[in-house]
Design a protein around this nucleic acid. Structure first.
Length: 848
RNA sequence: GCCCGAGUGGCGGAACGGUAGACGCAGCGGAUUCAAAAUCCGCCGCCGCAAGGUGUGUGGGUUCGAAUCCCACCUCGGGCACCA
């Protein structure tokens, strides 16, 4: 009997699959198709356990669907543009393209031993000119269709490095390299009109039945539809042209509780004032140092600057209220100006407290009297409250009703009008960086902004660039930006901004259906393969990537690149958890923490020195904490099947899984056991046995549980069912043929998870052909049900006894048996029960 | 700060509102072995000799019955528009 040696068998079966060509996606109109996609990786250079988990899950689905008779598309590619390649070029020299393609080669070489059922013939990288050229073609179509436009927007500007910084490069308001205080700068940038699709993107969420509810909720909140009042205050003492101040509020019912107005530091009025008043300029500059991220703005201490300007209250024009510039007002939302109602908004409350403004309550809880507040009173809008400073609708009403009444009232009085607003902002796609898809437009002194001609695509990135100085190398390239105007032919300049990498990942799923087409998509292939039937990736992409992809599919449809059915490109979504590991730490002489790789630690001690390590609870694997397990090492030690089996075991896929060496060893042990059992069963000689029927039952129960586990994305439960079947075969007295049959089924059911071992076992047990090509087993319903059932008996909700009854026994007979049960008799002590609840086939509860 | 999740034995977890702890890990006992490894068999929430009690982050509530539903809170994680 040969021993279990994955290092030998895994490459052998991978070669067998390749020779059979069974993973090549085939456009076969006679068969239903199934498109499985995992979020493609960024080519960092090394795969990590998170990748293994993600791709193994997709592989389980792909292999199961293939066995169930679908024509499966399961592709792989690379999200290859982005900042890390430029950072590497700056830090280590070299070129982003060389770095990226070398990383791709390494990662592909690390992935192939996993034995994934991927159609590698469809592989591409988003930095391939063949890919980004088609992206440029779509950009031009979208420009033509009015989906793309230019406007000014703020960026983080590092005044020392003279470069634009990403939010993650701004640390405590300073540039990560230069340490200089970051400024906000306005640049003219390209935008997608995603906000035009806000309503559709919101309402269509209801149709995404196979998406996690939490993702739909997060997207709905992100889009943030609100109904409110837009109105103008007349101003006193404002500069010319600012005699009115437009505000938007979702709580117009609280208008009588207003004690100030506030505008964004980027509001036109604030900008006007700062030109004449150095104090305003200084305050605004201070605000702009917070950066551009909403998180930073919200967390910053609330500060304001009294402009001296006043606004008149629309319902009491004698009342004049101060206008502040405030650092927490966003220019992008509403009109960039608000009226502050401190009694019913916590931010306004803090602001009013700080600046000594009045806090008049508009409403109080039902039955309560007006009293000074020590925090804002913000009950749910659905809760009825009593309005003491209301002006529309009854005294007692819900916030929702009061808002509607306030809008109607204001519209009647001509004070303002009801509007529907969205929090969702247009998608800025311009990046002042080299390693991205060039935006295919030309700036001509005579013709303005001119789209490049499609026949000139792709506009390729120049290779001869350097990263020895900060800023965008495209800007300082000696020749690249000089070109002829596509319209008038005179000398002109190329756009040197490139596209946000979210653009690249917003349509790769469509490109996989025809990766080498001469147009962005091939209508015939897109029609057959779209949509993605199952998309799998991290929850961190719940909002941006998925929302952008949903928008882009709509934009592609409008420009003729996708069929109507593909505007929601992902039929089903699954978001998987992270792979975590304990962190091992010691301290150096200065008391600073020093982290250690798991492979250098044994029994809580460093292998090298024997020093005890501090164990910090599990966290996401990260290089800085060194709590990483390299899949390459695991594969060389145990084989790919062990890594695959581990990441599917124990934890539910949507939750984090903690990697432990004992778990990996257990996985390996289990696979070894199955291998050994296959050999033993193959050598068995014994006739039929009465236990054969029980084993068949166990087998069919496993078919049922594993199939439901896989289809319900509960791989951990499928794994548990496979353990149970393995145990059942081991303990069974069944005859040789019955055991072989059970083990062949075990091999089939295991094949999506541990495909190499499954092939090996299938082969040993005399299965025909490849198990990867064998049809998925179906459970026999007759073998799934039991005639008798154990019925637990509760007394006052506590389990006290049980009876074994025929499943079909009428409730009346069950009641008689229950009342005769010794435990029940003992508890009743002669009395009769108050109530007797029989849930047929499940439980009995006796209420005393 | 705002939005969204998650919390069950020593550990990972299982459980249509119906026997809490399936399955795995660790641990303990036994078989096999000259011995060990490997393997196999059994036990295993906590308190208790037992009877029994108790138990799903905390505190309330709904229900014949709550890990599951509702309210409040605590802790941890994801996202916050230029990280991917």
């Amino acid at each position: 009997m040969s021993s279990f040696d994955p290092a030998v068998t895994e490459p052998r079966w991978q070669a067998a699959w390749e020779n059979a060509g069974i993973f090549t996606a085939r456009h076969d109109p006679a068969r239903p198709k199934y498109y499985v996609l995992e979020m493609f990786p960024y080519p960092s250079g090394r795969i990590h356990m998170g990748h293994v988990r993600n791709y193994t899950m997709g592989d389980v689905v792909a292999r199961t669907k293939a066995a169930q008779g679908y024509s499966v598309l399961h592709p792989m590619g690379w999200d290859a543009f982005g900042m890390p390649a430029e950072n590497a070029a700056m830090e280590q020299g070299g070129h982003p393209a060389d770095w990226t393609y070398a990383n791709i080669d390494q990662m592909r070489a690390q992935m192939k031993p996993l034995g994934l059922s991927i159609d590698w013939s469809r592989e591409f990288a988003t930095c391939d000119p063949e890919y980004y050229g088609q992206q440029q073609a779509m950009f031009l179509d979208m420009l033509d269709a009015g989906i793309v436009y230019r406007k000014n927007a703020v960026v983080n500007w590092d005044p020392v490095d003279m470069t634009v910084l990403a939010n993650e490069q701004v640390i405590d308001g300073r540039g990560w390299r230069s340490g200089a205080e970051v400024e906000r700068r306005e640049l003219t940038q390209w935008f997608f009109r995603i906000s035009d699709y806000a309503e559709d993107l919101l309402t269509a969420l209801d149709g995404l039945k196979d998406w996690p509810e939490k993702v739909r909720l997060m997207q709905a909140n992100w889009i943030g539809r609100s109904r409110g009042l837009q109105m103008a205050f007349s101003t006193v003492g404002a500069p010319e042209g600012f005699d009115r101040l437009e505000v938007y509020s979702t709580r117009p019912d609280t208008l009588m509780g207003m004690s100030f107005a506030a505008i964004s530091p980027d509001h036109p009025l604030a900008r006007n004032l700062e030109r004449h008043d150095p104090k305003v300029a200084a305050f605004n500059a201070e605000c702009r140092r917070i950066g551009t991220s909403e998180e930073a703005l919200e967390k910053a201490e609330k500060r304001g600057f009294d402009t001296g300007i006043r606004v008149r209250h629309p319902f009491d024009t004698a009342l004049e209220l101060p206008v502040y510039i405030a650092n927490f007002i966003l220019m992008d939302y509403g009109t960039g100006a608000i009226f502050g109602v401190p009694a019913h908004d916590q931010r306004d409350f803090e602001f009013a407290t700080k600046y000594g403004l009045p806090i008049p309550p508009v409403f109080v809880a039902r039955g309560a009297d007006e009293a000074p507040l020590d925090e804002a009173f913000v009950p749910p809008k659905t809760e009825p409250v009593r309005y003491i400073r209301g002006f529309a609708g009854p005294e007692e009403q819900t916030g929702t009703d009061a808002i509607a009444a306030a809008i109607s009232f204001c519209e009647e009085k001509g004070v303002g009008h009801g509007v529907t607003q969205y929090r969702l902002r247009d998608w800025g796609l311009s990046r002042q960086r080299y390693w991205g898809c060039p935006i295919p437009v030309v700036h001509c002194d005579a013709c303005g902004v001119v789209p490049e001609r499609k026949e000139n695509l792709p506009i390729r990135l120049p290779h001869d660039v350097t990263f020895d100085q900060p800023g965008n190398p495209l800007d300082r390239h000696p020749t690249w930006r000089h070109c002829a105007c596509p319209s008038c032919g005179k000398p002109a300049r190329r756009e040197t901004d490139t596209m946000d990498t979210f653009v690249d990942s917003s349509w790769y799923y469509a490109r996989f259906t025809a990766p080498h087409a001469e147009t962005p998509t091939d209508p015939v292939e897109a029609e057959y393969w779209m949509n993605v039937d199952q998309y799998i990736g991290g929850i961190e992409h719940a909002i941006l990537h998925l929302l952008y992809s949903r928008f882009f599919a709509r934009a592609m449809h409008r420009t003729g690149h996708l069929p109507a059915k593909a505007i929601e490109p992902f039929n089903a979504l699954f978001t998987q958890g992270m792979v975590t590991h304990e962190i091992y730490m010691t301290r150096d002489a200065q008391g600073r923490p020093v982290y250690h790789l798991p492979e250098d630690v044994e029994d809580g001690k460093l292998k090298a020195t024997g020093a005890a390590v501090t164990v910090i609870p599990s966290a996401k694997m990260s290089k800085s904490k060194k709590n990483v397990v390299d899949p390459v090492n695991i594969i060389s030690q145990f084989g790919a099947d062990t890594a695959r089996w581990f990441v599917l075991s124990d934890s539910p896929p949507e939750r984090d899984v903690e990697w432990t060496s004992s778990g990996a060893e257990a996985a390996f042990r289990h696979l070894t056991r199955v291998h050994r059992m296959a050999h033993e069963a193959a050598a068995y000689t014994s006739g039929p046995h009465p236990a054969d029927a029980d084993l068949a039952r166990a087998t069919h129960r496993a078919i049922d549980e594993v199939t439901r586990g896989i289809e319900g994305f509960a791989f951990n439960k499928a794994v548990a069912a496979l353990y149970a079947l393995t145990n059942a075969v081991q303990k069974s007295d069944a005859g040789a043929e019955a055991k072989r049959t059970a083990l062949r089924t075990l091999a089939q059911l295991s094949a999506p998870m541990v495909p190499h071992l499954a092939e090996e076992a299938w082969h040993i047990l005399g299965g025909a052909g490849l198990v990867a090509a064998a049809p998925w087993p179906k459970p026999d319903p007759a073998l799934l049900t039991d005639d008798t059932v154990i019925l637990p008996i509760q007394i006052n909700g506590k389990r006290r006894s049980e009876i074994k009854v025929d499943k079909a026994l009428p409730t009346g007979d069950v009641e008689k048996l229950v009342l005769a049960d010794p435990e029940v008799v003992r508890f009743l002590a002669g009395a009769s029960p108050k109530k007797l609840i029989v849930v047929p086939g499940r439980i009995v509860n006796v209420v005393l």
